[in-house]
Simulated scan of single mutants.
Amino acid sequence: MMNCKVLIVSDSHGMTGELQELYNRHAVDVYIHCGDSELPAAHPALAGYSVVKGNCDFESAYPTNYVEKVNGLSIFVTHGHLYNVKMTLQKIWYKAKEAGAQVACFGHSHVMGAELIEDVLLINPGSILLPRGRRERTYALLDVQNKQATVIFYELSGKEVAKESFVLQ
């Protein structure tokens, strides 16, 4: 039985107070930063976050990707630049499948979205600094109850922007 809540943020490009604000705003099982924080790994704004290395990050302590397991859910986390996510989601989908993940979280394109491709839910939270395709600076909250996954996108202020539901396998 999969039950968990996950906060997903990406492409904060040097922002600090906002990351701490999101951490304090939402009580979740895991906090994920999909890269391009442009902060050192020991920075207090990243306390509590699991972070990957983006193309604008020079911190060697960050992994390029990892798998987060939380309450029966397996989440593949990467920035996306190594998988050409601006052009296609096929490579990241294959990598998530290879890792045995039901969910893949990534950033890089600064475009928010969630899409279920076969049995992998792909989530890009957008950017809390420089969004593309919309004005709102966004992040995402994934709520999984049994096999029902709900992805809620919020703007930085906490106002809900969009909500989508999916059934995981």
Rank of each mutant, 00 (worst) to 15 (best):
E160G: 00
T138L: 11
D119W: 09
N146F: 01
Q148I: 09
K159F: 00
R137E: 05
L142C: 08
R132T: 00
A149Q: 01
N146S: 13
G158H: 10
L130E: 15
I128D: 00
I128S: 00
V120C: 03
K163A: 08
G133K: 11
E136A: 12
A140H: 11
V161E: 06
S127V: 06
I152V: 15
P131M: 00
E160Q: 12
R134P: 01
Q148P: 06
S127G: 04
R132E: 06
Y154S: 07
V161Y: 00
K163C: 12
V144A: 02
E160K: 15
I152L: 10
F153C: 00
K159T: 04
I123W: 05
D119A: 15
L122P: 13
L129Q: 13
E136C: 05
V120F: 09
Q148E: 14
Q145L: 08
T150A: 13
P125T: 09
I128Q: 01
P131T: 02
G133S: 12
E136R: 04
E155K: 11
L156F: 01
V144T: 01
T150C: 14
K159I: 02
S157R: 06
A149S: 10
G158M: 07
R137G: 00
R137W: 01
A162T: 08
G133T: 09
S157M: 08
I128R: 00
N146A: 14
V151R: 06
L130M: 10
G133P: 13
L122V: 06
L122G: 11
E160C: 04
P125G: 04
N124I: 05
L129I: 05
T150I: 09
L142Q: 08
S127E: 09
V151K: 04
E160F: 03
A140F: 11
Y154R: 04
K163H: 06
N124C: 08
D143H: 04
K163R: 15
